[in-house]
Write a protein that binds this DNA or RNA. Structure first.
Length: 717
DNA sequence: AAGTGAGGTCTTTTT
DNA sequence: GACCTCACTT
């Protein structure tokens, strides 16, 4: 085959990486430098030069989206399906391995996956059963503890609690939780990785099998790997295989979920004879944007070092808007977007980014008012919604009775007379005999150990599940789902919920039936699984989308974290305020502050043509008023790269010094207000203080007027 | 056992 | 402003 086509369209540095001799390779690739591109071409190059068969390649990412995209790009490049290659997420691949070797891994062959929500519920249960104070031993904290211990590769018996009674108790919680999971055949996310790691570590034959198979291992976004994933890779790569890792330490923004930037820094020590490459040419942004991003990130001390450059033109300067309130800020952004739309900039080429999700509300209101279509990324995903999880729990229980998490979830949903008392009985029995809740219930019913009323309620529930299991036998997935939902009375239950909420839930349940109908076993990813098995695990492993219609022309709203990996012509980064960004809780520790700065860097480098920053001098959040200072990150940008803007032509140069002014008047120029008699208008000017304060408002109908604030009863819009 | 109202909390996110 | 948990009532 023609090798040159794989190298076509790559720059010198990229070509060098793609065609590098085999061995361990670390590629430090800056934002927009063609990171994934290089990885995809590297795979194609292996195949085309016949250094590897698809069967010998393992490509790993973090998200399902990235995995799907990678597979698609490989196939496009090769112009044929990439059969036999393993492409997936760490968790997806670990899951596949565990399914193939469940016996060796000590798991039942129909084990189920416990998602974070199930895990938290289970832990809360465990803590209560231990009669511990939930304030002292919070389920959240226990969840964090269990997760981080597992990520360190530690089982309860390995943990040294240094005779600290609190830690000792945490270890007990971990132990009991794990016993619960074993009994119920449940595996949480971290467990997927840890089990696989232990499997490889303890079963030499298996390890050697996979080591000999996957001669070429490729990892994207390497800076996001956690300790366990790193150990996993080290084990699998062994001494002889080729590990190809691509990452950017400047875009490491996930330490809070266990990611270790150090993994990049230790790579060269841990993987012998590593060749290091850098990709520093950026193909995305203008010089002005890149210079701002470079200047910003240069303030970080713990960097491997990299400087992005571009051959592009300087482009427009950055813009900075100092708003009077979050409403003013939102209106400014919406107005910019609307004006741009008139100049043929599509809505979908704009993104509004923010540090925390709560910021989106005001922006959404402003967009809605201006009738600008938008979509918000993030939020609760399809398979995470209450009603969907309920229906899935019925299905899971019908398929696998020992699934305690599902049992707990639906035993009394909808309410059927099985209350706390009965449940305590069931749990006690389960613990005593070390059996699942289902089996405990069965013995309680046959031994007639409950009050008649509770017993018959429980008996009806057991009968319901048995009957479900029978009637879905041999049926297609969608039919089975339909039967389950019908028999569960969930629709009737949720229809009772007030307002639009209940309606959406019922719709979602209907949607679930069609999702089950459309589900196809992905041969490349789940070839070894039964459809039902594949469906249930997929629901847990990839919780689905939050928003569907990707094709419509709409403004994109998302948090900075969600924005990683995306790019847009025009980016609006709002809320550039101390306390909000960098976030209050992350300014006291240098490492955390630097991660905030990297987050800012990620935000800047999303923009192709135009980057607009804004902050507000007044922000009402939760239930408090804040008068924040502009973010320190703004001061780290060379001033000559920024234009600073005021609507109506008035430009203020000294925005850094006057953040505290006008703190006692709720209105500032640019603010939209409504007056009882004159209707809506925009504040033009302000004078005086206290009871003498007057505002000049330009009303849509009545024109410009001066009003005394104390009498005018103006309301912000 | 089930339904209602008060009170506390509120980064970021994937699997 | 919204959500979740808990305590109280019916």
């Amino acid at each position: 085959m023609d090798v040159s086509s794989v190298l076509d369209g790559l720059n010198e540095a990229q070509r060098e990486v793609v065609a590098a001799p085999p061995g361990n390779i670390l590629v430090l690739a800056g934002a927009g430098s063609g990171k994934t591109r290089v990885l995809v071409h590297r795979i194609a190059w292996y195949l085309d030069t016949e250094q590897a068969a698809p069967y010998g390649i393992l490509a790993v990412t973090f998200t399902n989206k990235a995995a799907a995209e990678m597979r698609g790009r490989i196939e496009t490049l090769l112009k044929r399906p990439a059969g036999g290659m393993w492409v997936g997420t760490f968790h997806g691949l670990a899951h596949r391995i565990l399914r193939l070797h469940c016996q060796e891994a000590g798991l039942p062959n129909n084990f189920q996956i416990l998602d974070s929500d199930d895990q938290l519920r289970t832990l809360r249960r465990v803590i209560r059963d231990m009669n511990l104070d939930e304030d002292q031993y919070s389920p959240k904290e226990a969840q964090w503890f269990v997760k981080s211990q597992k990520e360190e590769g530690l089982r309860p018996q390995h943990i040294d609690f240094h005779s600290d009674p609190f830690m000792e108790q945490m270890v007990s919680i971990y132990r009991n939780y794990q016993q619960n999971c074993e009994r119920a055949g449940l595996v949480d996310f971290a467990e997927l990785l840890l089990r696989t790691h232990e499997l490889f570590r303890d079963q030499d034959v298996l390890l050697r099998h996979y080591q000999q198979r996957f001669r070429h291992i490729l990892v994207d976004e390497f800076q996001d790997t956690n300790a366990l994933q790193y150990a996993w890779l080290r084990l699998l790569a062994g001494r002889d295989n080729n590990l190809f890792a691509v990452g950017d330490d400047d875009q490491s923004i996930y330490s809070f979920r266990g990611a270790r930037m150090e993994n990049i820094q230790h790579f060269q020590q841990d993987f012998p004879e590593t060749s290091l490459y850098r990709l520093e040419q950026n193909y995305r942004s203008t010089t002005n944007i890149l210079n701002a991003a470079n200047a910003l990130i240069a303030n970080n001390t713990t960097r491997l070092g990299k400087n992005l450059w571009t051959e592009g033109r300087p482009g427009e300067k950055l813009e900075l808007y100092a708003a009077y309130s979050e409403h003013d800020e939102a209106r400014f952004v919406v107005e910019r977007i609307s004006v741009a739309k008139l100049n043929n900039v599509n809505y979908q080429d704009n993104a509004i980014l923010y540090r925390i999700g709560a910021t989106s509300r005001v922006l959404e209101e402003a967009l809605m008012q201006a009738q600008v279509p938008y979509r918000v990324f993030g939020g609760v995903r399809f398979y995470e919604r209450t009603e969907i999880k309920d229906a899935m729990a019925y299905l899971r229980l019908a398929v696998f009775r020992d699934d305690d998490a599902s049992f707990e979830r639906i035993v009394n949903t909808p309410s059927r007379g099985i209350g706390q008392r009965s449940l305590e009985e069931i749990r006690g029995r389960a613990r005593q005999e070390n059996i699942s809740l289902w089996r405990a219930s069965c013995t309680l019913v046959t031994d007639k150990l409950l009050p008649t009323r509770s017993r018959s309620a429980l008996e009806r529930f057991l009968g319901l599940i048995e009957q479900m299991a029978q009637s879905i036998g041999g049926k297609g997935l969608d039919q089975a789902m339909d039967i389950i939902i019908g028999a569960s009375s969930l629709v009737e239950h949720y229809r009772k919920e007030k307002g639009e909420r209940g309606l959406t839930r019922v719709e979602n349940l209907e949607e679930l039936v069609s999702a089950a109908g459309q589900f196809e076993v992905d041969e490349e990813v789940q070839g070894d699984m039964e459809p039902m098995e594949a469906f249930l695990s997929q629901a847990a492993l990839e919780a689905g989308e939050t928003q569907a219609d990707a094709y419509s022309d709409a403004v994109n709203l998302m948090t900075l974290h969600t924005a990683k990996g995306t790019e847009f012509d025009r980016v609006y980064l709002v809320g550039m305020e101390e306390g909000l960004f960098p976030h209050q809780r992350r300014v006291h520790d240098l490492a955390q502050l630097e991660e905030e700065r990297r987050l800012c860097y990620v935000g800047f480098t999303r923009a192709r043509k135009k980057l607009t920053l804004s902050y507000s001098r007044h922000r009402r959040m939760y239930r408090n008023d804040f008068y924040p200072k502009p973010s320190r990150f703004l001061e780290e940008i060379p001033p000559e790269l920024i234009d600073d803007i005021r609507l109506g032509g008035a430009v203020s140069r000294d925005f850094f010094n006057k953040a505290e002014a006008d703190a006692d008047t709720p209105f500032g120029p640019g603010q939209r207000v409504v007056h009882d008699r004159f209707g809506e208008g925009t504040v033009l000017n302000l004078e005086g203080r206290g009871s003498h304060a007057r505002v000049q408002v330009n009303f849509e109908e009545a024109g410009a007027k001066w009003l005394v604030l104390a009498y005018a009863n103006l309301q912000p819009v």
